[in-house]
C-alpha cells in the first residue's frame, strides 16, 4: 500500500498538470464506455435470445378486430362474466361454453401448412341467429358477413402465434405425428397417455397451451429453434436445416 502511494506521489511529481486533469475525466469516460458496452451487451444477449427485455412489457397477444372469446367457443362448463357471476341467456338459464373441437373452425390444420381461420361466412352461419343484437362484437361480425346488408368484408385477424423468421412451419405432419404418438404431446390439457391415436384437437396444446381457457389468445411457448430441435431429436424427426428453413 505504501509503495502504491509512493508510486502515485512519484507520478504526481512527474506528471504534467494537463494530464492530471485528463486522467480523471478519461476515467469517468471509461466508466461511461463500460456502461454503454454493458448495455449493448445486454441488448445483444437479449437480441440473441430473441426476447425483449421484460421491462419493455413483452406480451405476445393482440387486441383483435373482433373480440373473439375462445373460452365461450372452445371452453367447457358454465360461463361467467368479468365479476364472476354466471352468464344467463334470455330465458335466464345459465350459459354453457360450447366446447367446440379446434378443428371445427381451424379446418385445414390436419391437411395444410396453416391451421386456417374460418371465413366470416362460417361465423355468420351460427351468428345470424345466435347471440343478442346488442352485442358489439357480434354486430361487427354481422356487418363483416354482409348480413346487415352491406358489402361483405374479410376480418383482418392478427396472427398471435408466430415462429421465428425464416422458418416454414407446417401443421399437417406435426398433427399427424402427435395424433399417432400421444406420448409426445406436451402441455396436455387432457389425459392422453394412452397408446391409441387421439383426436387432432388434443395435440394443439403442445405448442399453443390451453387456448380454450384464454379469453384473449396469447403465445405460451417461445417456439425457438432449440425447442423445435429438442423435440425433433427426441422423436427422431428430421433435423436437416432444409426441413424447416426453405
Amino acid at each position: 500500500m505504501a509503495s502504491l502511494i509512493s508510486v502515485i506521489k512519484e507520478r504526481n511529481k512527474t506528471t504534467p498538470t494537463w494530464l492530471k486533469i485528463l486522467i480523471p475525466i478519461l476515467g469517468l469516460g471509461g466508466l461511461g464506455v463500460v456502461a454503454v458496452l454493458a448495455a449493448l451487451a445486454a441488448f445483444v444477449v437479449t437480441g440473441w435470445l430473441g426476447q425483449p427485455v421484460p421491462i419493455l412489457g413483452f406480451d405476445q397477444t393482440f387486441e383483435q378486430p373482433i373480440n373473439f372469446p375462445h373460452t365461450v367457443h372452445a371452453g367447457t362448463g358454465q360461463l361467467v362474466d368479468a365479476s364472476g357471476n354466471a352468464r344467463l341467456n334470455q330465458d335466464l338459464m345459465p350459459l354453457e361454453a360450447l366446447g367446440l373441437d379446434c378443428t371445427f373452425c381451424h379446418r385445414t390444420v390436419t391437411t395444410q401448412a396453416n391451421a386456417g381461420v374460418p371465413p366470416v361466412a362460417q361465423c355468420a352461419f351460427c351468428h345470424q341467429a345466435i347471440g343478442p343484437e346488442s352485442s358489439v362484437p357480434l354486430t361487427q361480425l354481422r356487418q363483416n358477413a354482409g348480413i346487415t346488408g352491406n358489402e361483405p368484408l374479410p376480418i383482418n385477424w392478427r396472427r398471435v402465434t408466430r415462429m421465428p423468421d425464416h422458418v416454414r412451419f407446417v401443421h399437417e405432419p406435426h398433427i399427424r405425428f402427435l395424433t399417432a404418438n400421444p406420448a409426445s404431446i406436451g402441455n396436455a390439457t387432457a389425459d392422453v397417455n394412452s397408446q391409441q391415436a387421439v383426436k387432432p384437437a388434443l395435440t394443439c396444446s403442445t405448442c399453443h397451451g390451453d387456448v380454450a381457457a384464454m379469453a384473449q389468445v396469447e403465445q405460451v411457448e417461445p417456439l425457438k429453434m432449440g425447442q423445435c430441435v429438442d423435440c425433433h431429436r427426441a422423436n427422431n424427426a428430421p433435423t436437416d436445416c432444409a426441413a424447416c428453413h426453405q
Partner: peptide
C-alpha cells in the same frame, strides 16, 4: 410501451 418480439427485433 408494449413491444412485440418482431418489433423489438
Amino acid at each position: 410501451m408494449k413491444l412485440t418480439r418482431r418489433e423489438f427485433l
